[in-house]
Each structure stands twice: as C-alpha cells, then as structure tokens.
Amino acid sequence: MPQQVRGVIARSPGAPVELVPIVLPDPGPRDVVVKVQACGVCHTDLTYREGGINDEFPFLLGHEAAGVVETVGSAVTHVEPGDFVILNWRAVCGQCRACKRGRPWYCFDTFNASVPMTLEDGTELTPALGIGAFADKTLVHEGQCTKVDPDTDPAVAGLLGCGVMAGLGAAVNTGNVGRGDSVAVLGCGGVGDAAIAGARLAGASTIIAVDTDARKFDWARELGATHTVDASAADPVEAIQELTGGFGADVVIDAVGRPETWKQAFYARDLAGTVVLVGVPTPDMKLEMPLIDFFSRGGSLKSSWYGDCLPERDFPMLIDLYRQGRLPLEKFVTERIGLDAVDRAFTTMHSGAVLRSVVVL
C-alpha cells in the first residue's frame, strides 16, 4: 500500500522550501523503500531550490543520506529489510561503454526508482540527484543502496553520500595523491576539507588550505592542513609556491569552481603537476587563458565527479577507517537539525558557519 510521509520540497526557483505530506508508492520490482535516519544539507540541494540544476519543479530535496531498508521490490537481491545503507546517486549500470571498459566511475546511465513519489494531488516529484531524502522515507533503486557497518552514526555515514566523498575522492581517486606529495586545496568548505582529509589519509607531507575566510582554518587544520593561506590578504599562487620550495604543489584541488580559482590552481601547481576541479561551476562561467601555458607546463587537468568513487568499494572502506579512528568523519557534522529547519540551514551554509548541517530523523 502507498504510504504518506513528510518531505521537504521546492516548488519554484528561490521560494522557501516547504515541509509537506508526500506519497510514497509501492516499490517496483528493483526498488527499495528506505527509512531515512539522517541527511546532510548539501549546497547541491540549494542549487536545486534556486533552479540551477534544471526546471523540473517541484523537487524533493535531500540526497546525502543514510538509513535502514524497510521494504524491497520483488526482484531485489542487493539488499534486504533491516540493512543499514548509505544512499548513493551513482548506481552504475554495468552495461554502458564506460562500465565495459573498466571505468564505472564515469557511468552516467545510472539507475533510479522506477515509480515516482508524488504530492497528495498526484503531482510527480523530482528527487534531488535521484534520491530525495529530506523525508521520513524515500524510494530508490536497489543499486543506490550501499550496505555499511550498522553501528555507525547515521549522521556521519550519510555524508559519504555526496560532499565528503566528492572531496576525499578528488584527492585520493582523481588526484592520485601519494606519500610525500604536496597538496593545495582552494576552498575550505565541506568538500575542500574532505579533500584535505583525503590528502592526509594518502600520506601527503605538505597540505595547504586556501580560503578567504580565516574562520575556516581551524577546521582545515583539524582535518590535516599543515599550512593555511588567507587569499584575501595574500596572492595564493605566490604563497603556495613559497611553501613548496618555489615550485608549486604536486596536486592542487579547486573546491570552489570559479574561473579565477581554477586559474590559481593551474599556476600554483608544480611543473607537470595535477589540477583537480571538484567545485561545480555554473553554466555561464567562461575560462580564457593563453594556450601556450597549457602546452608548456604539461601535467594533468582533471575534473572529479563524485570523487570518481565506486560506492560499493569506497563507502565500506571509509566507514572502516572512521571506526578505526583513522578518518575523523565526525568533525564534518557541525549541527543536527530537524526536517523543519532546512531553509534555515541554507542560510547558515551561506554564512560559512558550518561544515555540514545534518537533518536527523
């Protein structure tokens, strides 16, 4: 039987979000109903609210979540009721060209639930990143569920569903940071600090945190930064070069995603170093640079989607590292809030006062 639960929706661009009744249909053959226990407030949800992703309103927001499988469709084999899972928005298909070439982290033919969640009047909802987890329960494809240790705090586990995995994976998977490397991270919000934590986990010897808000540097240091640069008071390119013997960093990660920060990342890297773009630019942004600079410096210029992760591989491993005390994921949880406080959390996010607000149900 369909269920009625609460969910946070965005009806139109820029309008305040609303906590309303939504209808959860019976799962299709490979669908799963998940009782949400926690969901992080990610900047991507705000971008959905502002109409920056697409115009398929109304949106059911929330995607950085963990919870317990409640019911499953008739053909589900991947999970069963009672499993504690992190929800992921890259349920790889296994059949596309990228998957068949052994690069499933590039898969874009991902699975979502086969039937829509709706408002009470039947209006279909578009779930954020195919998940929609600012809700008591949500409906997803079985491939969007990754089982992890059930003794893990859901508020911590859920953050691997997006922001923390994006940043950490940008360092470890995309940037291929290794022991003794020097790393600079531009932007010390949740994604940037996760990249810092990933660089430390990979054994980087020098980790430089760059931001214009000096209040964020304490978080960055706690997560592994060895040096900080206030970009409002010093040229970040010159500062990074000075901290790396005049050469530049081996890997520079742009967690902001603006043309000016990408240029800083490009020129702040060592000769033949690596630039990783993980901050998400808007469609109107343009980059203009001398082509000779690309030719003469060599190296790698990469973009990182979801930290180039494979949820089934990476989520359980990272949870194990967290439970061993080697990855301080709990430091990303700044505050715990209710479903009715999501709009306020968007405002707090803009102020820079939190790494993550987490909705706890």
Rank of each mutant, 00 (worst) to 15 (best):
1 M>P: 09
7 G>L: 14
10 A>V: 02
19 L>E: 11
20 V>H: 00
24 L>S: 09
28 G>S: 13
37 Q>F: 01
44 T>V: 10
49 R>Q: 15
57 F>T: 01
65 A>S: 15
71 T>L: 08
75 A>G: 14
79 V>S: 04
87 L>H: 03
92 V>Q: 14
100 K>I: 05
105 W>A: 13
105 W>F: 09
107 C>A: 07
110 T>I: 14
137 K>L: 10
144 Q>N: 13
154 P>G: 06
160 L>K: 03
162 C>E: 06
167 G>S: 07
169 G>P: 02
176 N>A: 09
193 D>R: 03
196 I>P: 06
199 A>F: 04
199 A>S: 15
206 T>F: 00
209 A>T: 00
211 D>L: 13
211 D>H: 10
214 A>I: 08
215 R>F: 02
220 A>H: 03
236 P>D: 04
239 A>P: 02
240 I>P: 03
242 E>K: 11
242 E>R: 15
244 T>N: 10
245 G>Y: 01
247 F>A: 15
250 D>C: 01
255 A>I: 09
257 G>K: 09
261 T>S: 06
275 V>S: 13
280 V>Y: 02
282 T>F: 00
283 P>V: 00
285 M>A: 12
290 P>R: 08
291 L>N: 08
291 L>W: 04
296 S>H: 01
298 G>E: 00
306 Y>K: 04
307 G>Y: 02
309 C>N: 13
313 R>Y: 03
313 R>I: 05
326 R>N: 15
337 I>Y: 02
348 T>P: 03
348 T>F: 01
350 H>E: 15
352 G>T: 14
356 R>S: 02
361 L>W: 10
